[in-house]
Design a protein around this nucleic acid. Structure first.
Lengths: 212, 212
DNA sequence: GTTTAATTTAACCAACTGGGCAAATAAAAT
DNA sequence: ATTTTATTTGCCCAGTTGGTTAAATTAAAC
C-alpha cells in the first residue's frame, strides 16, 4: 500500500492514490458530498472510475479520506498559531494574520467544512479527537483570565465569547464569499484586497473591543 | 391559481401549493438542493409526488420558489432593522437583538443560503434586485461617517469593514452550529442560552471596538 | 343533473449513479 | 522465463431520481 503523503493541493502528486485524493478533494470542495460525482472525480484525475473504488472502496470512504485530511490540516494549523507563548493581544494579531493566509489558500474550505458537518455531524467525532483542541482553548481562556486580573483586558469579556468572535470575524467572509461578491458586486481581486486589508485591521478591531 | 400567501413556517397552511412550499422549504433547508429528494418533500407534505410537478413543474422551479421567498424575507428583515432613524450605536444594538431573534427562529437559514449561493451564484442576481440593499448600506455608511466627524466613532473605522464585521458576528455562530456543538460539546439548550447571551453582549463588543 | 374544468393518483419511464467484475495489462518475485 | 501479484480497463447492473401520462376523482359551471 502506497500511502499518499503529500499535501492535498500539492502540484506534483505521484501515486495513483494521491492523484485520486487530490481530484476528489477538489470536486468535493466545489460541489459538496451530495453534489459530487464519482465520474467527475475520475475525469479530473484522468483515471478510470473503477480505480476510485479499487483504492477507496466507496464514495463515502473516499470522502472521509478527504475530509479527515482537511479537518486535521485545519485544526492543527489553528492550534499551532495559538501554541506560541505570546500575550493575548499578540496571539490575536498572529492568529488573524496566519489564519487569513491559510484560508486565502483554500477559500472553499470554511463553507465546505461547515456544510458537511451539518449534513453528517458524526464526521467530527468520528474523524477527530475533539480533546486535541480543548487544550489550546483552555490555555487561551486562562491567558485571558490572567490579563483580566492584570488590568489589560476588560473584566466583562467572556473568553468563550471572545474565541467565537475571533473565529467569526476570521472565517465568515470566506464562507460568505459568493454572497459578498453579489451584494458588494466585487470580483476576485476586490475580494483578495479586502482580505489583505482585513488581515491587518481585524486584530485592532478586536483588541479595541476588549482592552481595559 | 391560488397563490400561497402565508409565511413559510406558518402553522396552518391551506392551499396545496402552500403545503408543498412549506414541506419543500423544510427539506431543502435541511438537505440542500443536491441532498433533497422530491419524494421526501411529497411525503412530508402528505401528497403524491406528481403533485409537486403539477404545481411547480420541476425540482429547480420548486427550489427557486423556496429560495426567492427565503431570500426576500431575510433581506427585507435586515433592511427594516436599519431603516429606523437611530444613532449608529442604537442601530447596532437594535440590529443584533432583532437579527439574533430572526435567526433563532430559523437556525438553518444562514448555512442554507450561503451554500446554495455558492452552488449557483446566479440565484442572487436572478431572484433579487441587488440595489434594494445598497440603499440601506449607503445610509449606514454615511451615518458612520457623520459620527466619525462628530468624534463619536474612531476615525480609522472603515464603514464597509464594520458592516461585514457586524454580519460576521451575528451570522457565523448559526452557520457553525453543528461545529460548535461538536467542539464545545453543547446541546440544543446550551446553544440557545449562548445566543441569548450574545444577543445582549455583541453590541457592546462592537461599540467598544469602534468608539472614539 | 350534466357537462366541463381542475385536482389528485397510480403506474411507469429514461437517465443517472454508485458500485461490481472478469479480463487485460504491468510489475515483482522466483 | 515464468509464475505470482498488483494495477488498470471496459462493460455491465441494480437502485434511485426527477419527471411524465393517462385515468380517476373532485369541484365548478351551466
Amino acid at each position: 500500500m502506497n500511502r499518499a503523503n503529500n499535501i492535498i493541493n500539492s502540484d506534483t502528486p505521484q501515486s495513483t492514490e494521491a492523484v485520486i485524493l487530490k481530484a476528489a478533494s477538489e470536486v468535493f470542495m466545489e460541489r459538496g458530498f451530495d453534489g459530487a460525482r464519482m465520474q467527475e472525480i475520475a475525469d479530473r484525475a484522468g483515471l478510470n472510475k473503477a480505480l476510485l473504488h479499487y483504492y477507496y472502496r466507496s464514495k463515502e470512504k473516499l470522502f472521509n479520506a478527504v475530509f479527515e485530511r482537511v479537518l486535521i490540516e485545519m485544526i492543527e494549523g489553528m492550534i499551532q498559531i495559538f501554541e506560541d507563548n505570546l500575550t493575548v493581544f499578540e496571539s490575536i494579531r498572529s492568529f488573524f494574520k496566519k489564519h487569513q493566509e491559510i484560508l486565502m489558500k483554500n477559500k472553499l474550505l470554511p463553507l465546505f467544512m461547515l456544510n458537511e458537518i451539518q449534513r453528517a455531524p458524526e464526521l467530527l467525532i468520528d474523524l477527530y479527537p475533539v480533546d486535541r483542541i480543548q487544550v489550546v482553548r483552555k490555555k487561551f481562556y486562562s491567558d485571558v483570565n490572567n490579563e483580566q486580573h492584570m488590568g489589560i483586558i476588560r473584566k466583562d469579556v467572556d473568553p468563550h465569547d471572545l474565541f467565537l468572535n475571533i473565529l467569526s470575524l476570521s472565517v465568515f467572509p470566506f464562507a460568505a464569499k459568493p454572497l459578498l461578491k453579489g451584494f458588494y458586486s466585487m470580483d476576485e481581486n476586490d475580494f483578495q484586497s479586502m482580505i489583505s486589508h482585513r488581515k491587518e485591521n481585524l486584530a485592532d478591531f478586536v483588541i479595541n473591543a476588549i482592552k481595559a
